[in-house]
Design a binder for these strands. Structure first.
Lengths: 238, 238
DNA sequence: CATAAGCAAGAGCAGTGCTCTCGTTCTTGG
DNA sequence: CCAAGAACGAGAGCACTGCTCTTGCTTATG
């Protein structure tokens, strides 16, 4: 891996990036279903077959965009997480959730790409590494902080069934060594439910039902935070 | 509207139904993105242009399938709702949620059609009538029953902000006249969060993370029921 | 019975993803 | 330094898509 790369290598990276940028533009404009390799190539002044030197198929291009979208969302929530390291647990939780919502609202088609109907070609990597876990990890980080501050109660509803606890326990050492498995399980449930709040709004299912969406979201998200065990200032922690 | 319909009318209905059936078959097999008018026509032994006598576009066909899918899901949850009219509130809640999950797992592509990335052509009718509300209505019905049995507490987390309360109050008279607006608001939040649990599982985001999915679901759904105010036998309702 | 409406079929258009071939350009080992 | 080989862009072409238009035929209705 030489630091000095050949002109060809640099050109390749540049073209690859240009293709992804243009593809992301079309994605943001018209959605994944309308993304066309030929249109991307046309816009870049090249012929469609040339594009196959960089991405072996349309689905591979979409996969690249999926990874980028996961990372963009991950950056957004990590930013919120680190913006106020000493926030109240519930405030930090809300901040992370709000950051996710803001990103999703600003990039609905990219959100749909990662949390909507899966694209046929993209098989989610069956492990818990990679950019797909950055949002749940950010949520877990809020719980970890709360625990450090003595403000984390056992999750609502008591401990989950043993197999669920075991599922969660597997990921504790690597991802949340300071959390109890039951808390991580609660975080995962809250994560899925948060995605429900986001998808329902982004995909338009609240149309004609909920108009005060921001307040609705904040209220629901606060409930999720409490279900995980986050406690406000006055409340006991266990 | 004569009861005796012409042969042409009957033939039209029959062909329309055959088209939808074949389209649903292809949908279930390969997903919405792979559904092709030409393939449907081919399978039915007609030429593709003939199909346009019945559906003005591919998106209109998909819209018809969307309505059918909403109704199939609605039938599933209504069935669970009426199967045990005198169940414990939390048991009824779980039964409805389980019915939704079972239907979604059995018909993932149809679930994706109604709760995944929206298809560009289908603008969700901006009102609260229609088959799209049958699931949230079934959830509200469980709360109504619980209230009748004196087993409904105020929702967790206190009343939502006033604008959210107002949104909910608008729909109380028509859809849930016996519920407090704050309870309906909590039901709507629980509905969105339930969709999150379903979508996350159906769309494969639990791969490699949660293996005990049924138990995980039941545990999370019980939490949702409690957040709405449903109380188990021993618990006070106020 | 004649007129009009409904219908299936076929050709055709513009667009798509993708493959293959053919020169050209750049990189690199001898 | 130069020749072999890899990477590359262009173009033609294939099979497919949604959709339109025209042409005849069948059915319903005045």
């Amino acid at each position: 891996m030489t630091a000095i790369r050949t002109a060809r290598e640099r050109a390749r990276d540049e073209v690859t990036r240009a293709i992804k940028d243009e593809a992301r533009r079309q994605l943001a404009a018209d959605g994944a279903s309308k993304l066309s390799l030929r249109a991307v190539a046309r816009e870049l002044g090249m012929v469609s077959s040339a594009l196959y030197r960089y991405f072996p198929s349309r689905d591979e291009l979409l996969t690249a965009l999926i990874v980028d979208a996961y990372n963009a969302l991950g950056d957004a929530v990590d930013g919120a997480l680190h913006a106020a390291p000493d926030a109240e647990p519930l405030d930090g939780w809300t901040a992370v959730c709000r950051a996710a919502r803001a990103w999703a609202l600003a990039h609905p088609h990219e959100y749909a790409l990662i949390h909507g109907t899966p694209v046929p070609g993209y098989a989610a990597p069956d492990d818990t590494s990679g950019p797909g876990v950055r949002l749940p990890l950010a949520l877990a980080a809020v719980a970890t902080r709360a625990r450090g501050a003595g403000r984390l109660a056992p999750p609502d509803g008591g401990p989950p069934p043993a197999p669920v606890l075991a599922d969660a326990a597997i990921h504790v050492p690597e991802h949340a060594p300071e959390l109890e498995p039951e808390t991580l399980a609660a975080v995962l449930a809250a994560w899925a439910q948060l995605l429900g709040l986001l998808s329902t709004e982004i995909f338009g299912q609240f149309n004609g039902v909920i108009t005060a969406r921001e307040l609705f979201f904040d209220h629901a998200v606060a409930g999720l935070g409490r279900s995980v065990g986050l406690r406000a200032a006055g409340e006991a922690a266990g």
